[in-house]
Simulated assay, not measured.
Amino acid sequence: MFYALFVAIVVVALAASLAVVRFFDPAVHKILQRTLGPDLADAWRRYISFAILVAGISGGVRPWNLEQYLPPSAGKGSTQLDITGARWLLELWNALTETLRSIALIMLLFFLCSMMAYVIARSLELRRARELEAGKGGDTSGLE
């Protein structure tokens, strides 16, 4: 029964992670194309998808919480908990919420970094535009 619970938790974490990857893929692709350009956007999109999968599965599958369902080691006074329907539901719910929490942290970090990259790129574009205007204005004044 322990192995079935473990596999079910991995499946829940994997399914939730894949759903989040599919949901955020268009937004991530647009952001990466804008900040990095089309050449690097596809490679970084694959990396972000991989990071979401790894963070989701590692956050959702918590082996140290599942140890309570294993028989106690020799010399230890702890007892083994029974895996009931209520515990299944609770463990699967915890797996789902922890998966989403881990992914939310990754996505927050990604969006904060991309926002900073956008602001920096935008400020550089505005600075170049001002320099071009100042250069054109200086050239026309010399002709008059």
Rank of each mutant, 00 (worst) to 15 (best):
Arg62Gln: 15
Met107Leu: 15
Ser114His: 10
Ile106Asp: 13
Ile52Lys: 02
Ser58Met: 13
Thr99Phe: 10
Gly37Pro: 03
Arg87Glu: 06
Gly59Tyr: 01
Ile9Gly: 01
Gly77Glu: 03
Arg62Pro: 00
Arg101Phe: 12
Lys30Pro: 02
Leu32Ile: 09
Leu32Phe: 06
Ala41Cys: 11
Thr35Ala: 05
Arg127Val: 12
Arg62Ser: 09
Ala8Met: 07
Leu108Val: 03
Thr79Val: 02
Gly85Ser: 00
Leu124Ala: 14
Ser17Arg: 05
Pro63Glu: 05
Gly85Arg: 03
Glu144Phe: 11
Pro38Tyr: 12
Ser49Tyr: 01
Pro72Ser: 01
Lys136Ser: 14
Ile120Ala: 11
Gly60Leu: 05
Gly60Cys: 08
Ile31Asp: 01
Ser17Asn: 02
Gly77His: 04
Ala134Met: 08
Glu91Met: 08
Pro63Lys: 06
Ala104Gln: 08
Pro63His: 14
Leu92Ala: 06
Gly135Ala: 11
Met115Phe: 13
Phe2Pro: 02
Leu132Met: 11
Leu40Arg: 13
Gly135Arg: 15
Leu126Phe: 04
Met107Ile: 14
Leu92Arg: 01
Leu132Ser: 15
Trp93Arg: 08
Ile106Gly: 12
Tyr118Leu: 15
Glu131Cys: 07
Arg122Asp: 13
Asp139Lys: 14
Leu40Ala: 14
Val28Ala: 08
Thr79Pro: 07
Ala43Thr: 15
Ser141Ala: 15
Thr84Tyr: 09
Leu53Trp: 10
Glu67Asn: 05
Ala8Asn: 00
Tyr47Asn: 12
